[in-house]
């Protein structure tokens, strides 16, 4: 019982990370058909805002010293701000560009952010003790689980419910959903395009910041490439979930997390190193059988 629960928790916490990442990508894809490759670099930047720029090996903690009730909103706000800034400065000029162009532009932007961080902080991973109380283990149903894993799962579920009710209950949410369904039509019907898109970027940035907080406290490290892996998995989850479908992205994120953890558990030692090959093989299989994704968002077929 205990060990099964442990695996379930492992899968759920990894899946939560991917799901949060996939949501961030799907939100932006929904409103402007942009596959935002800069998302991973926004995640990394959100961790680095806690440190004072320096190329020394020892991190100079700056905003990271704030008490948690200030630190969490601060990081979320920085994520949102960076993301909105990227829309205002860069992506706004690409409204009518084709998806490939936007994708490469977002990649170039991520490249700029990454090398900017590298110049300010050097490539050496910096250690930070972020929210250290979260590293303590707790006992749930016979499984000893780090508190952080529990919080990750709870936060993800909280974010999902919060986002759902936000999209369902508020006017802004309604506009955003309308824009995701059919942007041109929504615009004709009076949806304020720039506001909706900026809102989507702000939400996406805040989600990136949430991932940054989780990754930062889990790994204790700020590293310029730390967002890349989550971003790739999130990107895959977004596609498997059905481009533009928020619920699909979340489900696929959890699914990918579960596949990765289960592969690690069931593969024999010699094959474990090949885990990723099996995971990506599974991705191809899912795509072959459900090319439009698990849940298909209306109006997103064949745009890329």
């Amino acid at each position: 019982m205990g060990s099964v629960m442990q695996v379930v928790f492992d899968a759920a916490s990894l899946g939560s990370l991917y799901a949060l990442g996939a949501l961030g990508i799907a939100l932006i894809f929904g409103v402007m058909r942009l596959v935002n490759f800069a998302h991973g670099d926004v995640i990394a930047a959100c961790v680095f805002v806690l440190l004072w720029p320096s190329v020394d090996a020892v991190a100079i903690v700056f905003a990271g010293n704030l008490p948690w009730f200030l630190l969490v909103p601060f990081v979320l706000a920085m994520g949102a701000a960076l993301s909105v800034a990227s829309e205002v400065v860069v992506f706004r000029r690409f409204r009518n560009a084709n998806p490939a162009t936007m994708m490469i532009a977002s990649f170039a932007l991520g490249f700029v952010i990454r090398y900017f961080l590298l110049m300010l902080y050097s490539s050496r991973p910096k250690s930070i003790s972020l929210l250290p109380t979260l590293s303590q283990p707790v006992e749930i149903m016979g499984a000893r689980i780090p508190l952080l894993q529990v919080i990750t799962i709870v936060v993800t579920i909280g974010v999902l419910f919060g986002l759902t009710s936000f999209l369902r209950r508020t006017r802004f949410g309604l506009e955003m959903r309308a824009a995701a369904e059919n942007f041109t039509m929504a615009r004709v019907l009076g949806v304020r395009a720039n506001r909706v898109i900026m809102g989507a970027f702000a939400l996406s940035g805040a989600l990136a910041a949430a991932i940054a907080l989780i990754l930062g406290s889990q790994t204790g490290t700020a590293n310029i490439v730390m967002g890349a892996n989550v971003m790739l998995m999130a990107f895959i989850a977004t596609v498997i979930g059905g481009m533009g479908s928020l619920a699909g992205a979340v489900i696929a994120g959890f699914l990918l997390g579960a596949i990765a953890v289960v592969m690690q558990v069931i593969l024999p030692p010699d094959a474990r190193a090949f885990r990723d090959a099996f995971v990506y093989g599974a991705v191809i299989l899912v795509l072959i059988f459900r090319p439009q994704g698990l849940l298909t968002a209306r109006g997103t077929k064949e745009r890329v």
Binding site: D276, Y280, V283, L287, I288, V304
Partner: peptide, 23 residues
Amino acid sequence: VLMRLSGIAASIATFAMLAMVNS
């Protein structure tokens, strides 16, 4: 296998192929 897919699903499938080969 992959050429039956189109659009972004095909893109991701080709990426999965790259990741498999790399792994």
